[in-house]
């Protein structure tokens, strides 16, 4: 049966060969589905009297300067999307790196010390569920300055998954490896370098990956409330301006935020795969 049906199919294949190339077969489905969604969107806005833009308007209204000149700078807060993104990314970088350093350190301490683990676990479980924006007022009170406050919000949002995963990673070091270390009487340094760190790395990177997503969520929200510049500010600014193309600017910014968030997630994932190779 299979041989019968296989013959005609293989005959037809050369006719549209490019359609069966690996790349084409991979993007075929997303291109089709996203295209249909856009078409539906465009179709639906026809009935909207308020002038909500369809995808075509979004692109045409933001084409100049936002899409083709991402790095224009008219002084003040009037900047291109690229520059706004850079400002946001800078804040994220500072807050996230701080969170990673402190979080891994705290995770190590909690993972290695049963007393600390028992003592801090309830606190961590409570604080990790606090939404990022709830930290903003207290952070403003503490630092008095919008920029530092935003960085602190990122830090405090991103740190919990890093602490938790690092601690879990240490707990989950297989008994076999610890036994090897005990039998060989490994020195503390060698234990850290040869067993603890490689065995925990995959868990740490899982934490870091969750953390980068949260950090990116937090920055947009924080900037919308209180900041000069940044992609969140850009959205809020466009909204307040209330011009013809405001809605299109907002939609464009949302798309950019999504793409950058995805990029960050993939980046941390890729670094993790390289660093923690063979750990699991």
């Amino acid at each position: 049966m299979t041989s019968l049906s296989a013959t005609p199919r293989s005959k037809r294949r050369p006719a549209a060969g490019w359609l069966h190339s690996p790349l084409a077969s991979q993007i075929k489905a997303p291109v089709l589905c996203i295209g249909l969604t856009m078409a539906l969107w465009q179709f639906l806005v026809q009935f909207n009297s308020e002038g909500f833009p369809g995808p075509i308007q979004v692109i045409s209204q933001t084409w100049d300067p936002y899409i083709i000149h991402p790095f224009f700078d008219d002084g003040g807060t009037s900047k291109g999307l690229g520059l706004q993104l850079l400002i946001s990314l800078q804040r994220v970088a500072v807050g996230y790196i701080l969170a990673a350093v402190v979080g891994i350190g705290a995770g190590l301490a909690i993972g290695l010390n049963r007393f600390l683990r028992r003592g801090f676990d309830p606190l961590i479980q409570v604080l990790r569920t606090v939404p990022p924006l709830a930290w903003l007022p207290i952070s403003l009170l503490l630092f008095q300055q919008a920029d530092t406050a935003a960085i602190f919000v990122i830090f405090i949002t991103a740190i919990w998954p890093i602490i938790i995963n690092t601690a879990v990673g240490i707990n989950e070091i297989p008994q076999d490896y610890t036994n090897v270390a005990r039998v060989l009487r490994l020195r503390k340094r060698s234990y850290l370098r040869d067993i603890l760190m490689p065995a925990t790395a995959p868990y740490v990177f899982t934490g870091l990956r969750i953390a980068i997503g949260l950090a990116w969520l937090a920055i947009v929200a924080a900037e919308m409330l209180k900041a000069d510049g940044g992609i969140g500010f850009f959205i809020w600014d466009a909204y307040n301006a209330g011009g013809d193309s405001s809605t299109s600017q907002i939609i464009l910014a949302i798309g950019v935020i999504g793409l950058v968030g995805l990029g960050l997630d993939r980046l941390v994932g890729a670094v993790g795969n390289v660093v923690a190779k063979g750990g699991k």
């Binding site: 090897v180 039998v183 490689p198």
Partner: peptide, 14 residues
């Protein structure tokens, strides 16, 4: 007193 463990216990990253 060296042990050869049931599931080898080699360090997979080495």
């Amino acid at each position: 007193r060296m042990v050869v463990f049931q599931n080898y216990s080699l360090l997979p990253w080495q």
